[in-house]
């Protein structure tokens, strides 16, 4: 019998100093029963990936409002892969144009959430994805 809970890391890569959104999402995921590690502002991609590895999280959520997402998001993905964490459910949010969302979603990101997304939708989406993953793990074990 295991007591598995969804563990999430919310990271803010780069120099963007606005974390209201990150904190909001962290609180909402907490309220949906997840264990959420928030690592604070001004993290390098390597710091986020290393924290995700040490915390052995199931989900990494990146938040960026500065416009540097096309530079920083893929670097976080690469750093995660380098640490054997390429299999995490990788999601992101912030001020991100639709074209960039499409391109990231085709490139290792499971889902991007734009401004105006109801917070409950984010939580529900993650829960559903993780349920599928936990089921698959259960079958393999």
């Amino acid at each position: 019998m295991t007591e598995r809970r969804i563990r999430v890391l919310i990271g803010k890569p780069g120099l963007d100093g606005h974390d209201r959104g990150a904190k909001t999402v962290a609180s909402v995921l907490r309220d949906h029963g997840m264990e959420v590690v928030y690592t604070g502002l001004h993290q390098t991609p390597a710091m986020i990936a290393e924290a995700a590895a040490q915390e052995d999280v199931d989900v990494v959520g990146l938040s960026l409002l500065s416009g540097a997402h096309m530079a920083l998001f893929p670097r976080v993905r690469d750093e995660l892969t380098a640490r054997g964490k390429g299999d995490v459910l990788l999601v992101g949010g912030g001020i991100i144009p639709h074209d960039d969302m499409d391109s990231l979603e085709g490139d290792g990101f499971a889902k991007l959430f734009g401004p105006g997304t109801p917070t409950t939708d984010i939580a529900t989406w993650i829960q559903e994805e993780m349920e599928k993953r936990f089921e698959r793990e259960g079958e393999e074990a």
Binding site: L29, R30, D31, H32, G33, M34, E35, V37, G40, E55
Partner: peptide, 14 residues
């Protein structure tokens, strides 16, 4: 952990 939802915000790393 929250006694209501079981969720938690883990902020010591900051």
């Amino acid at each position: 952990s929250s006694p209501f939802t079981g969720g938690a915000l883990l902020g010591d790393r900051i």
